[in-house]
């Protein structure tokens, strides 16, 4: 029992954080939102070189072996810096393309960061950035097919460029591991949402310390303090669920973590907007890059209700009286 990141994991997180801090992500995000992918692709390659996508790929396919805890740690940082692009979708693709010939054909590009992947595998789920992704995977009743991307639709989060996928390409695999890919994707979204929440909290704390009204920083007022305390509490209690889920990788644990992290991030987003006041309600102010993402992630890869059902079904099954000793 030692439920903490070890020194190596901390060093990995710190180096990713430092790299992303230096990358000036707000400028990259705004370019990406306009469909100008150059700076985003450069950043993407650095994320790939840091080994992030390799954490979802076994060693025999060129990855680092499957390391869900490290992946979750990495995605917290990617969320904290609101890195744009189909990050979660690329992880899902890396898990889906498990069949050795497919792995050999597609994974080198994904691991190197030269190729982005996007996927449409959950009902009503959007594929992200089909215009930028080289590998587009769509789920059909008979398996997994290559797909072509339709026109980009605007998301509430401008950095999430939604593209419908038409499964008009080659049939890649009649039975890929959809369930496992969903689990990894949900774990990544949960982590990303938690990072988004922490960024919103930090920015808002800094703002309410700076902003004065009635002759005092607004952060000295109890009504403001209590909202921030509640946001911090929600995030801090989502964190252990995330890492508990990364340790077990049970779909029910991952669903509970996804639900809780996304709710905590969304609560924090509402608080962040309210406490910033009108300036927070502008697209120009960088806070908007995280605010809108918190809302979008809440339903990405499974709504709160779907995740709750996955959790509840498992909880009722494992605690059923007939199973008790």
């Amino acid at each position: 029992m030692r439920f903490l990141p070890d020194a190596e994991q901390r060093a990995f997180t710190d180096s990713l954080h430092a790299m992303l801090t230096a990358a000036d992500t707000p400028a990259v995000i705004r370019e990406w939102s306009r469909g100008d992918h150059a700076s985003g692709r450069a950043l993407w390659r650095r994320v790939a070189r840091a080994g992030v996508f390799g954490l979802a790929v076994p060693e025999e396919h060129g990855g680092l072996g499957r390391h869900p805890v490290e992946l979750a740690l990495a995605f917290v940082e990617l969320g904290r810096h609101a890195v744009p692009g189909p990050l979660v979708e690329t992880v899902a693709a890396a898990v889906l393309l498990a069949d050795p010939p497919l792995a050999k054909r597609f994974l080198p590009g994904l691991l190197a960061g030269t190729d982005l992947a996007t996927t449409a595998v959950v009902p009503n789920g959007h594929a992200l950035d089909g215009d930028a992704a080289a590998v587009r995977l769509a789920r059909i009743p008979g398996g997994l097919r290559l797909a072509s991307a339709g026109p980009v639709r605007r998301s509430l989060d401008p950095a999430r460029r939604l593209t419908p996928l038409a499964p008009d390409g080659e049939l890649l695999d009649p039975g890929p591991p959809f369930g496992l890919a969903l689990t990894w994707a949900r774990l990544a979204v949960a982590a990303q949402a938690l990072g988004v929440g922490f960024a919103l909290l930090d920015r808002t704390v800094a703002y309410v310390c700076r902003r004065s009204q009635f002759g005092a920083p607004v952060g000295s007022f109890q009504a403001v303090k209590h909202r921030l305390a509640d946001a911090a509490t929600a995030l801090e209690f989502a964190r252990p669920l995330l890492f508990g889920a990364a340790v077990s990788l049970r779909p029910a644990d991952v669903a509970a973590a996804k639900l809780t992290a996304c709710e905590a991030a969304y609560t924090t987003a509402r608080t962040a907007l309210q406490l910033h006041g009108a300036i927070g309600y502008t697209a120009e102010y960088d806070l908007s890059l995280w605010l809108t993402k918190a809302r979008a992630l809440r339903t990405a890869w499974g709504t709160p209700e779907e995740c709750r059902e996955v959790f509840l079904e498992d909880a009722l099954r494992t605690s059923a009286p007939s199973d008790s000793p």
Binding site: L201, V205, G219, Q222, V224, K225, L228, A229
Partner: peptide, 15 residues
């Protein structure tokens, strides 16, 4: 909540 806000988040003390 005051303690969380002041000691964990570093918000200024107030009334």
């Amino acid at each position: 909540r005051d303690i969380v806000a002041e000691r964990l988040l570093g918000l200024p003390k107030g009334r």
